[in-house]
């Protein structure tokens, strides 16, 4: 476990100066010497900063889960502490990026868009599933504990194995199907505004897997489709453009042993969904559809 402290704000100008002084140096010996001096300067600065950080209220404390299956010292999971200078509007992702770029470039997490649409950075923040990029530091209690999503295999640090989640998503035939497309050239299928509204929330899923991670049933039953996949099935089953025969097939898929009937309506998935999708409601509605459908054949 290592405790690390922030460097001074002047750090950036300091690095620029280092860059400049290194340009003319061609010889290895000279470069080595410069590296040594730079390392000394850094060490000194870190020591100074340790004192400063202790007194500084504008610094936040992150405790981040670390694990790497092949690096000595990281094979046993541990928590590292990072002190990050707080800036207005800072998110958990901003803080992690700062810690990585400033203190430890091996700190590993998925992230890309920074705006809650790519779904890469779902994590377990202070004990609940969150998208790091849309979680404000100011709304969290310190120290902030950042862990990988529970109920999935950890690849490294905050990165989890997503394969199982993708398999479940793929298991519900997650693609539009219809037997009747319009004949005319350049003619779209008609869809009522009401129907589009009905499926709208379900189409907002970003595959972040926060819901799956929060679900007790999914944790105990690895074959359970899980909230995201069932929501995907809902998105198509409720789309009037697909037609009744396809809907039959969809209901059969979600009625299977590890389908909708496993859901115990605990609402944990709905609570953690960063896109506010009413997952539990969608699952309940599919249960009702399935019952109606079965009665039809009596």
């Amino acid at each position: 476990m290592s405790t690390q402290v922030p460097e001074q704000p002047e750090e950036s100008t300091e690095s620029a100066a280092e860059t400049e002084t290194q340009i003319p140096s061609k010889g290895d010996a000279r470069r080595e010497e410069k590296r040594r001096r730079a390392a000394e300067r850094r060490a000194q600065k870190q020591a100074e900063e340790a004192e400063r950080a202790a007194a500084d209220e504008d610094t936040i404390e992150l405790k981040v889960f670390r694990y790497d299956p092949e690096v000595e010292g990281k094979q046993e999971p541990r928590f590292d502490t990072f002190h990050v200078p707080f800036t207005k509007g800072m998110t958990v992702l901003d803080a992690l990026m700062y810690a990585r770029d400033t203190y430890d470039s091996s700190l590993t997490f998925r992230h890309s868009c920074r705006q809650a649409i790519c779904g890469s950075d779902a994590m377990f923040v202070n004990g609940s599933q969150k998208l790091a990029c849309k979680t404000q530091i100011s709304e969290l209690q310190e120290p902030i504990r950042v862990e990988p999503l529970p109920h999935a295999e950890v690849t490294k640090d905050l990165v989890i194995e997503m394969e199982h989640f993708y398999e479940q998503m793929h298991a519900v035939e997650p693609y539009f199907q219809t037997n009747e497309l319009p004949d005319g050239e350049l003619e779209e299928q008609r869809q009522s505004r009401e129907n589009r509204e009905k499926i709208k929330m379900s189409t907002r899923c970003i595959w972040c897997s926060a819901c799956m991670s929060s679900c007790n049933i999914a944790a105990g039953d690895n074959e359970y489709l899980g909230p995201a996949a069932i929501n995907k099935a809902y998105r198509f089953a409720m789309d009037e453009r697909e037609g009744e025969d396809i809907k039959q097939k969809r209901l059969e898929i979600i009625e299977q042993e590890h389908g909708v009937w496993r859901c115990q309506t605990q609402f944990s998935c709905t609570e953690v969904c960063p896109k506010d999708i009413p997952l539990t409601e969608h699952i309940q509605e599919l249960k009702r559809e399935a019952v109606k459908n079965n009665l039809k054949f009596w």
Partner: peptide, 16 residues
């Protein structure tokens, strides 16, 4: 139109 035929949920007019 191909995207629409692949199910993309476009915003709609009153007439669908």
């Amino acid at each position: 139109i191909t995207l629409e035929h692949w199910g993309m949920p476009f915003s709609r007019e009153e007439d669908g």
